[in-house]
Computed example of a mutant assay.
Amino acid sequence: MADITLYDLPGCPFCGMVRSKLDELDLEYDTIEVPRAHSERTEVEAVSGQTGVPVITDEKQGIEGMPESSDIVAYLEETYGENGA
C-alpha cells in the first residue's frame, strides 16, 4: 500500500493532471475510483469534506484530503520534485 492515495474519476481532466504529475515524479500511489454521482461519494467526502475530485492523501507527509488539482500538482512538485524530497 502506497503512502499517497488519489481519489479519482475516470475521464476527469483535472484528475488526469494529477495522475500525470504523480507518474512524472515516478511516485507510487493507490487510486480509489469515486462514483459519478456526487451524492454517492461518501468516502471522499469523509476524507476531504467535499465531493469534488481529485483529492489526495499523503500519509508520509500528514496530508489528509487535499482538493483542487492545481494545489495538488504544486504540492507534489514542491514536496517530491527536484527541489523537494
Rank of each mutant, 00 (worst) to 15 (best):
D71H: 02
S48I: 09
G11F: 02
G62E: 00
Q50C: 09
P10I: 02
C15I: 02
Y29N: 06
E28V: 03
P54E: 07
D23H: 11
G65N: 00
G84Q: 00
V18F: 03
L9F: 07
G49K: 11
Q50S: 13
E78W: 04
I32F: 14
E78S: 10
V73C: 03
E33N: 14
D26H: 11
V47M: 05
L27Y: 05
D30T: 14
S39K: 13
T79W: 04
V44A: 02
A74C: 04
I32G: 09
T57K: 00
S39D: 15
P67H: 04
T51A: 09
Q50L: 06
L22D: 11
E33F: 14
G16I: 08
S39E: 15
P67T: 09
P54M: 05
S20K: 15
D30R: 15
K60D: 09
R19Q: 13
Y80G: 05
L22I: 06
E78I: 02
G84R: 03
E24V: 03
E77I: 08
T31G: 11
Y75W: 01
E43V: 08
T51F: 12
V73P: 09
E64P: 01
A37Y: 10
L27W: 06
E40H: 10
L9P: 12
E28G: 08
A46T: 10
A37Q: 14
I63F: 02
L6M: 07
G62I: 03
D30N: 15
I72F: 03
T5P: 12
E82G: 14
E64M: 10
E43K: 12
R41G: 14
E45C: 10
V55H: 00
E28N: 13
L22W: 10
D71W: 09
V53H: 04
V34M: 12
A46I: 04
G62N: 03
V18Y: 08
P54H: 01
E68Q: 11
D58S: 11
M1H: 06
F14H: 06
E78R: 13
E59T: 06
E43M: 10
I32A: 00
P35H: 14
T31S: 12
Q50W: 07
Y75D: 01
Q50G: 05
L6Q: 02
V55W: 03
E45L: 15
H38R: 13
K60G: 05
M17S: 15
S20C: 08
R36C: 05
M66A: 00
D71S: 11
I72Y: 00
A85G: 12
G84S: 07
D3T: 13
P10K: 05
G65D: 07
Y29W: 06
Y80H: 03
E24F: 14
D58W: 02
N83V: 10
P13D: 04
E78Q: 10
D8W: 09
Y80R: 00
L9T: 04
I72P: 08
D26F: 06
E33S: 08
T5M: 13
Y7N: 01
V44S: 06
G49W: 08
D23F: 06
L22C: 02
L6R: 04
V53Q: 06
R36H: 13
R36I: 15
R41K: 07
V55G: 07
R41T: 14
E59V: 01
I63V: 13
L6D: 07
G81C: 00
L76P: 08
F14R: 06
G81I: 03
